[in-house]
């Protein structure tokens, strides 16, 4: 089986400051990879480098494209990368307002990706938007409302709908549950888990919340100071952490 995404030797420095260094891993179709670590450990830098938002200093990000097989996305031209970014890839931001157009209705937000790749039938676009709002449990009567009138949890679900409408194969998520209260978090996680399983999505999830990766991720990487200190199956890493930092991380979780 060939990997969907293969990251090799990815490094990014901010001047003398290290963002992330020499990160390599493979992600297989249908697999969910969790990246955990404390603030400033380089996990968001890594995610942004993979998604093409930042230009890494060294390394390769190979993606299994539909037509041409494994290709280094860093060597692609800008139009190719943008096309990938709105068809096969999706990016869920921590702050919904970074990923949504706040001045455009919910339906327009969901439809944007479809229109960007050439959908020109209003009825079809609206039909798909309605379908997706239903799938992320947003009242379809609110399709013409702006996201600024939505609650935080609804905005996050809308952002997910907007990203998944084009049927991507790979989703990057940056702290998708950050800033939400626990009951809303639980519903969102439930929803995400269902969607990932139903659509057979591959995903890379960056979070500092170990409960999130326990529920969603098949595999786990622990990062500290820009480097991967431990990697393995989620349950294995969380139940039997080997590296001193992973042990600290696991033991820091509050038990209720």
């Amino acid at each position: 089986m060939t990997p969907l995404l293969s990251v090799q030797g990815l490094s990014k420095h901010y001047g003398a400051q290290m963002g992330c260094a020499d990160v390599s891993f493979d992600l297989y179709p249908g697999e969910v990879m969790g990246i955990v670590g404390e603030s400033g450990s380089g996990k968001s830098t890594l995610l942004n480098c993979m998604a093409g938002h930042l230009k890494p200093d060294a390394g390769q990000v190979l993606f299994e494209t539909r037509t041409e097989g494994l290709r280094d996305t860093l060597q692609m031209s800008e139009p190719e990368r943008r096309m990938l970014g709105r068809t096969d890839w999706a990016f869920v931001h921590q702050q919904p307002r970074d990923g949504l157009r706040m001045g455009v209705s919910a339906g327009g937000n969901v439809g944007e990706r479809l229109m960007a790749v050439g959908a020109r039938h209003y009825g079809d676009i609206r039909g798909q938007a309605l379908d997706w709002l239903e799938r992320v449990e947003i009242d379809v009567a609110r399709i013409d409302h702006r996201p600024s009138t939505f609650s935080g949890g609804m905005q996050q679900r809308l952002q997910i709908a907007r990203n998944l409408v084009s049927g991507p194969r790979l989703v990057f998520m940056d702290e998708p549950t950050g800033g939400l209260d626990v009951s809303v978090q639980a519903r969102l996680l439930d929803l995400l888990r269902g969607l990932v399983r139903d659509m057979g999505l591959s995903a890379v999830i960056v979070t500092h919340d170990l409960a999130v990766v326990r529920l969603l991720a098949d595999r786990l990487m622990v990062m500290k100071s820009g480097r991967v200190v431990e990697a393995g199956l989620t349950d294995q890493v969380l139940d039997d952490p080997q590296h001193a930092y992973s042990q600290l991380l696991v033991s820091s979780v509050l038990q209720v």
């Binding site: 800008e78 139009p79 943008r82 709105r86 157009r101 455009v104 209705s105 339906g107 327009g108 439809g111 944007e112 990706r113 229109m115 960007a116 790749v117 020109r120 209003y122 676009i125 609206r126 399709i143 013409d144």
Partner: peptide, 16 residues
Amino acid sequence: LEDYGLMHVKLYEDIS
């Protein structure tokens, strides 16, 4: 880049 999807979002908003 001929990235004109946004223009149709405006027309979509009009119709909705």
